[in-house]
Simulated scan of single mutants.
Amino acid sequence: MKEAASPSVCNRVKEKLSRNELVLSMTVRLVRTIEIAVLAKSAGFDSLYIDLEHSSFSLETTSQICMASFNLGVAPFVRLASTAPEYIGRVLDGGAVGIIAPHIQSAADAEAVVRAAKYPPLGTRSFTGSLPQLEFRSYPSTEIFSALNQSTVVMAMIESADALDAVEEIAAVDGVDVLFIGTNDLCASLGIPGQLDHPRVREAYVRTIDACRKRGKHVGIGGLVSNPKLAAEFVELGARYVSTGTDLSFLSSAANAKASQMRDLCAG
């Protein structure tokens, strides 16, 4: 099979992780047009993820951004609003090269997501031809199954005390590539809301990183936009997929900085 755009883009992310290199991502939850993919490319991001859990984006908008993104060489992932199999299938059929599954509490939850994201024999994803990941070309189904099963990234979010208790079992699930820690939700679940630098948070990262190292998996960092030094500390410990912030936070931060700068310059 001729290598198509999105599998090669996704495989580059997997290759960087396998070489223990940093993978930087930006989150999309404000900009609804394909220009955001161009901005991600220009800024040097390896990936972006569209946050359907915390936005009102439609699947149509999501698909358009995904297709623009992988054609520019930026791996498009989607944080799901639902882990129902039919929803996962539609997100992937629309052009995403990976999914971020929230509210994973157990190995059984992670296994269900993998089954929905993978074609037989690894899963039960329903097949349709002419996928955007393959540039709408037709290939034998066995070749499609093999190529997309290999390239599709599955991230399981660790964002609760229950998930942390089961982190070893979740990391052991075949087909899960990344355990992505949602630091803010995890803090709330642990009874320390907002305390991102609490020792229990560091313990959670150490525990998750250790579990992933044993299984050849990787750890993602989320929710530390306000504390980049802490994110850097967790990278030093071994986390490699870093969510650096949202398009909304980038715009707000730059706008506030510019307004403050001009007030200071014009004060005299």
Rank of each mutant, 00 (worst) to 15 (best):
R125D: 07
A107R: 10
P121N: 08
G123S: 03
P121A: 11
A116N: 09
G129A: 15
I100A: 03
P120F: 11
R125A: 03
G123D: 00
D109K: 15
D109Y: 12
S130E: 09
E111H: 15
A107N: 05
K118F: 00
I100H: 06
V114Q: 07
A110H: 14
P121F: 10
F136L: 06
G98D: 08
T124N: 14
P120S: 14
T124P: 04
P121T: 03
L131A: 13
G98T: 09
S130K: 13
Y119H: 06
D93K: 10
L131T: 09
Q105C: 12
G129Y: 12
L92A: 06
S106F: 14
S138Q: 04
A117T: 05
A107Q: 09
V114C: 06
P120N: 10
P102E: 02
S138A: 07
L122S: 00
P102N: 02
L122D: 01
S141M: 01
L134Q: 08
Y139N: 01
D109Q: 11
S141L: 03
A108C: 12
S141D: 02
V97P: 12
S106E: 15
E135K: 06
I99Q: 02
G98I: 12
S106G: 13
P120L: 13
Q133M: 11
Y119P: 05
A101W: 03
H103N: 02
S141N: 05
P132K: 06
S106V: 15
S138P: 02
G129S: 15
I99L: 03
L134T: 08
A96T: 13
G123C: 07
S141F: 04
D93I: 08
G94M: 06
A101Y: 10
P121G: 13
F127H: 14
Q133Y: 10
P132R: 04
I99D: 01
A96S: 12
K118G: 00
R125Q: 07
D93G: 05
A117E: 00
A101P: 03
A116S: 04
I99M: 02
Y139A: 00
Y139C: 09
E111T: 15
S126P: 13
D109W: 12
R137W: 09
R137E: 04
F127R: 08
Q105A: 11
A96L: 06
V113S: 10
R137N: 14
L122N: 00
L122E: 03
G98Y: 07
L122C: 01
P120K: 14
I104V: 12
L122A: 01
Q105R: 13
F136I: 04
A117G: 07
K118V: 01
P140H: 00
Q105E: 13
R137Q: 09
V97T: 13
S126H: 14
R137H: 12
P140G: 00
H103Y: 07
S126R: 13
G98W: 07
V113Q: 09
F127E: 15
S106M: 09
E135A: 09
Y119K: 08
Q105T: 06
A116E: 06
L134N: 11
H103R: 04
G129H: 10
S126V: 14
A112G: 15
P132V: 03
S138F: 02
V114G: 03
R137S: 04
P121K: 05
L92R: 06
I104E: 03
I100V: 11
P121C: 04
F127D: 15
D93Q: 08
D93H: 11
P121H: 09
A110K: 15
Y139V: 04
L131M: 12
G123H: 01
